[in-house]
């Protein structure tokens, strides 16, 4: 999934450098609260371990092909999300400089696509599903597989968006995404299983190495706090909603395009009292019709609507989670 320099435009490369730098600055700040002197050599050696372990061919039964372990997920499970993220940056920088695996200019994209999702999404899942509660082999396996799949799916999606925004390929969005997501689903599953096998072995042999294990019966020091996690996710949503939406295409999407071809218009009108009532209701409640201010088509309007949309989704997500928690408790 390493992106080459030729696949990014200066604007996309600069934006991704900025967001990755923000995530790195957050990680440096967070990690300084931990035992840094001891952690730095561990980060260096673990980075070299991931590099070396990615050279091992793990044979996938019945296919004749091989897979590799997921570096971001593994580092998060051992070092924690922030230290894992910084170690992944070092690995990606070395891969790009010494092995031409990914470009120097595309490093910001690669850090975001692989390190951020791998460590923060993967690390977050590990924390919630395994380390956050009682650690078991099943929980570790589930967290590894789900974390790897989620990280790779998000990474592949970002690669598609970044390449398309850079105007590199003539491939339509639907075709590109249709090629990227399924293949990375399979890769994520295999990488998740390999990572799970390694983590389960560690859990059985030396569980204290796993991040969050030692604090199982104590406080939650060293783990990413709920406040920290929510803040990080909120910041990511703001960046994606606010910055990336500026590049949103003005062309009709796949569904609108199909409708235009079939009906000659992108808007379909239905007759009847129920439809009219629904339309009036929508007109009153829609603050940002077509994702912009009612009276403005400006970039600020698009960007603002991206941020508002992100906030609305986060709020809805928060209330759904609270509801699920309450229902679970009542059982």
């Amino acid at each position: 999934m390493h992106m080459a320099d030729a696949l990014v435009s200066p604007a996309v490369a600069g934006t991704m450098y900025a967001v990755s730098a923000a995530a790195a600055a957050y990680s440096v700040k967070e990690i300084k609260l931990e035992d840094l002197d001891r952690k730095v050599p561990a980060m260096g050696v673990m980075g070299a371990f991931v590099f070396a372990a990615q050279m091992i061919n793990f044979t996938i039964p019945g296919t004749g092909s091989s897979g590799h372990l997921c570096g971001g997920m593994l580092l998060s499970a051992v070092l924690g999300p922030c230290a894992g993220f910084l170690t992944m940056i070092a690995i990606l920088a070395i891969q790009c400089l010494l092995f031409a695996d990914g470009g120097l200019l595309a490093l910001g994209c690669n850090v975001w696509n692989m390190a951020f999702y791998g460590c923060f999404v993967g690390g977050f899942l590990i924390w919630r599903m395994a380390a956050g509660r009682k650690m078991t082999k099943g929980r570790i396996t589930a967290a590894s597989v789900i974390g790897c799949i989620a990280g790779l799916q998000l990474g592949a999606f970002s690669v598609t968006i970044e390449t398309l925004l850079s105007g590199i390929t003539e491939l339509p969005f639907a075709v590109f995404i249709g090629m990227m997501q399924p293949i990375h689903l399979a890769i994520g599953l295999v990488e998740g299983l390999i990572t799970a096998a390694v983590l389960v072995f560690i859990y059985e042999a030396r569980p204290e190495i796993l991040y969050g294990y030692a604090q199982e019966d104590g406080g939650s020091s060293g783990r990413m706090s709920r406040k920290g996690t929510v803040t990080a996710l909120f910041a990511a949503a703001l960046v994606i909603g606010g910055v990336v939406s500026l590049f949103a295409s003005g062309y009709p999407d796949g569904l609108e395009w199909s409708m235009e071809k079939v009906a000659g218009t992108t808007e379909l009108f239905a007759r009847g009292n129920v439809y009219q009532l629904a339309e009036r209701l929508q007109g009153i409640t829609a603050v940002l019709p077509d994702y912009a201010f009612k009276t403005s088509d400006s970039a600020a309007g698009t960007s603002f609507s991206g941020i508002v949309g992100g906030i609305v989704v986060l709020t809805a997500c928060f209330f759904i989670c609270v509801l699920i928690k309450k229902v679970k408790r009542s059982k």
Binding site: M46, F49, I60, F201
Partner: peptide
Amino acid sequence: RGLDYKAWGTFAGQLLLRSMDRA
């Protein structure tokens, strides 16, 4: 060719443990 799935965990896990000791 490559590493059999039964050895995935032990092989890379041993390497990881040795790396941690080295750290």
